[in-house]
Design a binder for these strands. Sequence first.
DNA 1: CATGAATGAGTGTTCATTCAT
DNA 2: AATGAATGAACACTCATTCAT
Lengths: 196, 196, 196, 196
Amino acid sequence: MPTANPTTDEGASKKERILDAALGLFAERGYHGTAVPLVAEAAGVGAGTIYRYFEGKQGLVNELFRREKRAVTNHVLGSFPFSEPPRSQFHYFFGRIVEWARTQPQSFQFLEHHHHGPYLDEDSLALEREVTEYALNYVRMLKTTGIARDADDHLFLVVVWGTIVRMMREAWNGSLELTDAFLAQAEEACWEAIKA
Amino acid sequence: MPTANPTTDEGASKKERILDAALGLFAERGYHGTAVPLVAEAAGVGAGTIYRYFEGKQGLVNELFRREKRAVTNHVLGSFPFSEPPRSQFHYFFGRIVEWARTQPQSFQFLEHHHHGPYLDEDSLALEREVTEYALNYVRMLKTTGIARDADDHLFLVVVWGTIVRMMREAWNGSLELTDAFLAQAEEACWEAIKA
Amino acid sequence: MPTANPTTDEGASKKERILDAALGLFAERGYHGTAVPLVAEAAGVGAGTIYRYFEGKQGLVNELFRREKRAVTNHVLGSFPFSEPPRSQFHYFFGRIVEWARTQPQSFQFLEHHHHGPYLDEDSLALEREVTEYALNYVRMLKTTGIARDADDHLFLVVVWGTIVRMMREAWNGSLELTDAFLAQAEEACWEAIKA
Amino acid sequence: MPTANPTTDEGASKKERILDAALGLFAERGYHGTAVPLVAEAAGVGAGTIYRYFEGKQGLVNELFRREKRAVTNHVLGSFPFSEPPRSQFHYFFGRIVEWARTQPQSFQFLEHHHHGPYLDEDSLALEREVTEYALNYVRMLKTTGIARDADDHLFLVVVWGTIVRMMREAWNGSLELTDAFLAQAEEACWEAIKA
DNA sequence: CATGAATGAGTGTTCATTCAT
DNA sequence: AATGAATGAACACTCATTCAT
């Protein structure tokens, strides 16, 4: 056990240290506002090292996008209560997403700021589509079983995801305090919009 | 009548030509991703000309933000049916916003991408707050009259605005076709989320 | 007598208004540090007007150089006491130069800052040489008559002019207060350096 | 011994190559008349490299000013004959300054052109004051011991420094040939202006 | 493997000059 | 004659990327 704690910056691999540093900087300053040497410094590596692990700045942002997208997906689906009733599942989903946004705000913000950038490559876009497709399938199941109202499959994603993203933005602004009460109301409003 | 049509690029004033060009570029590439000489070229003016009309790139983005914010606000409120019942008013509001997003997609995208940029000045932020405050007051009225459910004032903005923004995004990347049916469902879903 | 007071800015010709404005700006900010539109604004004329009267910025600085060089020369020689004894003549010369530097500091500073610029043309350099030649002839007369010591003709110019320029610079700095006592000492020191 | 001769351009460090190139250009064309890319080209480095070593153009001119000021001061004071009589000391001083101006004309001109620029920072101004104060103290000693006449402390600096600067200028534009005879006369004239 | 000094194309901005009015 | 809006080359400076060590 040579590196005792692989979750610290020191123990993490160089590639992960670079991704971690890039996450914080891209989330806060955006893609064009973040200089590569700054990422290197924040990661504690030389500027040239980034180019050993990534195909330039664009390669870095794409690998980071996929890492974060997979992480949040895994956070929600990793222990999804598939056997519980739909309303409970929705409660679980809503809670897990909000938990992610609150505990990993940089990840959430990064994904929101970058999911439409012209620098995303085909792999990243394919992953985005894959996740969407998974969600759509779940929605179809809800409709088939009569839980959700009879509406376009995309509608539910649009309402739920749009609401959550907007809510987090306003919270980060300072326009909104994310109390338990507010979260409960938001969840309920989303469910009202969905349910048959 | 030599200057017959001031709405064409040729007839528009240089300042407006610059603002129009900047709108498209900022909407697509973001603030930091858009070079000033590119704006100049797109506007058909010299690079130095921009600095006759605006106080630098930051001045340009702020004047543009306020022009577009005022335009969309005016589009929605200019002929608002204040004397009709709330559900009709909501229908009107939803329709007008969607109309704006479909006919002026660059304006809509620009406002969404830039409403929190650190380059916005106090005037722009004040305008943003003013519009939000106006919407909140409307929401408070809906609650007072028992039309809307008893929830945080911001919740309704979050759900409605988040849904609309998300819907437009999905429509622009081709994931979603904005049929009349879909729009009607989205409007209804939003109302369900709001109503008491 | 249509323009009552031709020495005011309003009464002066446009060309002179431009030269006056340029004098102050070039003296304070230097040639490269002064923008032509700034000169135009200070002169109360349009930017293009400068190009009707001068061949560009370089033409302007050269005409200005010659105007000022002639003005200071005239101030010293215009009423020179040719019939008085040499010591009195030197006293007069020293006093007139210092008077010019104190009452027309912009002119004095401008001439000092610009008499070696690579933008001076042949006419300006010829005028510079002409004035120097005039001074050298005076010096030769002083030597011939046994008033000045037997030394290189240029030595006296170097000592006297070098001392006066340095003195004025230090005075403008604030390093030096130009009291009557100091001026008398400086004049005496110069004379000591010259006299046989 | 691969880096045998560190005084050639090839052997000098990049920072020194930049300073050397800047010295020649600033001396000839002034601060505002010298473009940073021109300095880079003259130094044989990329434009960006200058910004690795200096905090912008202003940082460059200030570091250069201090390097040259220290160099000339050291040239004069490094082997100053403190134990010799004052007239010998003055001879030494005069000779060393002239030697510097003749062998390092760019340094001499640069210091003369830039010692009052508004771009000099506090460190540079402090160094300037320090050197002046040192010279004034020497002058005070000469007065106290009855060697120099009873006049304002600054007078001697003004006469001697003004004369030397003027002399070098005339020599550089070809108006004056700096023969040993001329230099001896100039030194003697300065001493006459000083001595009691 | 890893570095970071070096680069030069590109950035936002200024300004000497022109020219339609 | 006089203007000042318009220009585009040039400015000071940044940064994604390379490569000698």
